[in-house]
Computed example of a mutant assay.
Amino acid sequence: MPCNSSDHSGCDHIVDEGAEMSLYSQIDLNSTTCLNAENEESFNDIFKPWDDRFDTTKVLKSDADEQLIMYIPFTSSVKLKSIALLGLNDDSQPRKLKVYINRQDVDFDTVEGIEPTQEFECLQSCPQGAVPQYLTKVTTFTNIRDITIFVPGNFGADHTVISYIGFKGEYTEINRDPVITNYEIAANPADHKHKFEVKTKNLI
Rank of each mutant, 00 (worst) to 15 (best):
V131H: 03
K168W: 10
D191P: 02
M1Y: 11
S77P: 05
Q118H: 01
V106N: 00
I101D: 00
R103I: 03
H159Y: 13
E41C: 05
T136N: 09
A37G: 08
E170T: 14
N182D: 14
I114G: 05
G87S: 13
E112Q: 00
P189V: 03
T148W: 10
T75D: 06
K81Y: 08
K58Q: 13
C126E: 10
F74W: 01
T140I: 13
A19I: 08
E197W: 07
V138Q: 12
G10P: 07
S163R: 00
D105I: 07
L68F: 11
I204M: 13
N89C: 10
A157F: 05
K193V: 12
D55T: 06
V161H: 05
K201A: 15
I180N: 01
F141Q: 02
Q104N: 14
G166D: 07
F54K: 05
V161D: 05
R145D: 14
Y71S: 15
N102W: 08
N182K: 12
S92D: 04
F54L: 05
S22D: 07
K79Y: 06
A19Y: 12
Q104C: 14
A84I: 04
P132V: 10
F120W: 03
M1F: 02
H194K: 12
M1N: 07
L123T: 05
Y164R: 08
K48F: 00
I174G: 08
D158N: 15
A157M: 09
Q124G: 04
A64S: 14
N202L: 15
H159N: 15
P178K: 07
D16W: 07
G10L: 00
V151W: 09
F196T: 09
F74K: 05
D12N: 14
L97A: 05
I101P: 00
K193R: 13
Y24V: 02
S163F: 02
N102V: 06
I174W: 00
K96C: 00
N182A: 13
E66H: 08
L68G: 09
